[in-house]
Simulated scan of single mutants.
Amino acid sequence: MPVIALSEAELASHPAFEGHEEVVRIEDEATGLAGYIAIHDTTLGPSLGGCRVWRYADEGAALEDVLRLSRGMTYKNALAGLNLGGGKAVIILAPGAPKTPALFQAFGAAIEELAGRYITAEDVGTTPADMADVARATKHVRGTPASGVADPSPYTALGVFHGILAAVEYRFGSSSLEGIRVAVQGLGHVGWHLAEKLHEAGADLLVSDIDAKALARAEEAWGALAVPVAEIHAAPVDLFAPCALGAGLNAITIPQIRAAIVAGAANNQLAESDDAGRLRERGILYAPDYAINAGGVVALALAGAGRSQTEMRDKVEAIGATLAAIFALAAEEKTTTAAIADRLAEERLTAVKRRSQAA
């Protein structure tokens, strides 16, 4: 299985490269496997992050995605208090090419060559069944029945839901969602579970998705109002929940947002770091993505350590308290919530590095 390491010289000029420890290209002509695995930081332990399967426009787009996502996993795992580093994998699916068990077994063989430095799991475009195929070739995988949590999506949604409760309480003075208007962008695994919880809590839903069947189901199940994908971010709501792909918060969309809060499950929601400032300037409360969407990785990590369902739920629900602290610190220090989240994650990484150097 060819696992081709990219040199730091090759990566140094890439805008998304931030001192990643290891970036490899994975390929297998027989199965059609092509993609990247990026290990950003293993200060806290082996890197854990999902595998995204996507029909990328080109290799450059895939490389940028894996670099950004792996860095986000380092901060997510650190802020969540996990003894895990940050990594990510992306598989480039060619136009018309199907996902196959053989492709995922080849991917598992590539992971095995990294000797435990990277642990994979489900992400956009992958399922528990895909992870079971990966597990045929490597033990370094989560999100299978054998690992204790077959599908992390409900846990991710649970954490986002509690983060939303914290954001609503901070902004409106009450955690009740009764009558709160929420725009959910994306009804995939996590978005659907989140929307269901919001509906049960009394929220009025506006939803968007590229899948017309998912929209029809949401309209029937919850009386949700379907909104075009290109317009959902600008809907007149109290809270906007991005649950699709990243970079949706940018210099073009942020001025159009009419919500008081942005809190959702998508990774890498900010197109660039300045976007956190743009949100703050508009008075929009932003729940940093890797802080609010850590529920899935928390469940995967704790399940792998043999922890109980109660322990997992308690840890996931504590995401609300973490966000409440971030909101308060950002207000006190007159800075962005993203800056506070980054600092808290970096403080933990620095402390562990110092202890390691002193030992």
Rank of each mutant, 00 (worst) to 15 (best):
residue 16 A to K: 14
residue 209 D to T: 03
residue 323 L to T: 07
residue 184 V to F: 03
residue 344 L to V: 00
residue 162 H to G: 02
residue 270 L to Y: 07
residue 235 A to S: 11
residue 22 E to I: 13
residue 111 I to N: 07
residue 171 R to Y: 12
residue 97 A to Y: 10
residue 162 H to N: 06
residue 8 E to D: 14
residue 117 R to M: 09
residue 73 M to T: 12
residue 165 L to K: 08
residue 292 I to D: 03
residue 280 R to L: 08
residue 230 A to H: 14
residue 157 A to G: 05
residue 288 P to W: 01
residue 330 A to N: 00
residue 90 V to F: 13
residue 129 A to V: 06
residue 233 H to Y: 14
residue 234 A to K: 00
residue 157 A to L: 03
residue 67 L to W: 11
residue 326 I to E: 06
residue 319 I to F: 04
residue 47 S to K: 00
residue 337 T to D: 01
residue 20 H to I: 11
residue 14 H to Y: 14
residue 204 D to A: 14
residue 234 A to Q: 09
residue 255 P to E: 08
residue 195 A to N: 03
residue 145 P to V: 07
residue 354 R to H: 13
residue 1 M to G: 11
residue 329 L to S: 13
residue 270 L to D: 02
residue 328 A to K: 09
residue 133 D to T: 10
residue 90 V to M: 08
residue 246 G to L: 05
residue 311 E to Q: 03
residue 195 A to W: 01
residue 64 E to H: 15
residue 145 P to Q: 01
residue 233 H to F: 14
residue 99 K to W: 10
residue 100 T to D: 11
residue 256 Q to T: 15
residue 41 D to P: 04
residue 96 G to S: 02
residue 338 A to T: 12
residue 228 P to H: 04
residue 152 P to K: 02
residue 241 A to G: 02
residue 289 D to T: 05
residue 75 Y to Q: 05
residue 44 L to K: 02
residue 135 A to H: 00
residue 282 R to M: 06
residue 238 D to F: 01
residue 252 I to Y: 15
